[in-house]
Write a protein that binds this DNA or RNA. Structure first.
Length: 282
DNA sequence: CTGAAAACAATACTACACGT
DNA sequence: ACGTGTAGTATTGTTTTCAG
């Protein structure tokens, strides 16, 4: 039951212009970072990435297996990293405050305890910065299938059809939204229009978006990206469109959902075009 | 076991000075 | 300009304590 508890985060533009740069500053922009704090935080994020929802105790256990006394001390360290600390009246923020990690439910195994998992922003940051193998990403997709159902929930199906293109989510994690007007060069495919509409649709959500909406926004990006092709082959049907149709073929839910988005975009642009032509300016 | 906090030790980071 | 040393500060690590 993904349900955020008080954490707020923004849409993809907010990821690109605020979350990602801030996270790079605080937690490193590369897995080779030599700064101790960066290493510690990245290790923690990696544990959550591969293992999904955990308590701090679980996290320490994953890292130190059966060494109970090490687990005991490291558990406190993980907790501190997550929630920050206040020393001599001065507060230093933890990972929770940026929203890379969120609380997700409680474990009642012993006394009730908070469970933590990555937020969507956190997943993107990990894809961006940690040096993850495809195997790691596959494990993550299983753990986070409920958080990003339209992509991770259909991971193996998508892989069977579009192959390694599933890992292209890393492009988004680098902050490349592909909403750049140069894309218009490929005039047969309205890639620029669709990518732009993804931002138009969620333009009011820079500061605050529900996790479901953000998941949808990311998913729209993912499926729209399938339309992108390097070279224009001279086929009747555009290879990008072909790819998308192959995904739709055996998944009506995705088809319906994406076509609704497409129609919404179409409607939006025709209304805007009308507004321009009926303005009397020209 | 979880969670918060205090106290102090250790270390990492910064800016600046110095010599080359 | 460049690397190196270093003092002082800031941040992080460790241990302990206490309450559920």
């Amino acid at each position: 039951m993904p349900q955020d508890q008080g954490t707020r985060y923004g849409n993809l533009l907010s990821y690109k212009y605020y979350i990602r740069p801030t996270a790079h500053r605080l937690y490193g922009s590369s897995y080779t970072s030599k700064i101790k704090h960066h290493e510690n935080v990245q290790k923690l994020l990696q544990i959550l990435f591969i293992n999904g929802t955990c308590t701090t105790w679980d996290m320490a256990k994953i890292r130190f297996h059966n060494d109970i006394s090490t687990i005991r001390t490291k558990e406190k360290e993980f907790r501190r990293l997550l929630i920050g600390r206040t020393d001599r009246g001065k507060h230093s923020a933890g990972i929770l405050e940026l929203g890379l990690v969120v609380k997700d439910g409680k474990s009642y195994k012993k006394t009730p305890s908070d469970q933590y998992r990555l937020s969507l922003h956190g997943i993107l940051f990990c894809l961006d910065v940690l040096n993850l193998s495809n195997t790691d990403i596959d494990k993550m997709a299983i753990q986070y299938s409920a958080v990003l159902p339209k992509i991770f929930g259909k991971w193996e199906y998508l892989k069977s059809i579009i192959g390694d293109d599933v890992y292209k989510l890393q492009i988004l994690s680098k902050g490349l939204l592909l909403d750049n007007p140069n894309l218009i060069q490929d005039s047969k495919i309205p890639l620029y229009e669709l990518m732009s509409f993804i931002h138009i649709k969620y333009r009011r959500n820079f500061e605050s978006i529900s996790e479901d909406d953000l998941a949808n926004q990311i998913s729209y990006w993912f499926y729209t990206y399938l339309l992108y092709t390097r070279k224009q082959k001279k086929t009747k049907i555009h290879p990008g469109v072909q790819k998308l149709h192959r995904v739709f073929e055996r998944d009506e839910e995705i088809q319906k959902w994406f076509l609704e988005f497409f129609n919404e975009a179409q409607k939006y642009y025709s209304q805007r075009a009308n507004a321009l032509s009926s303005s009397g300016i020209a």
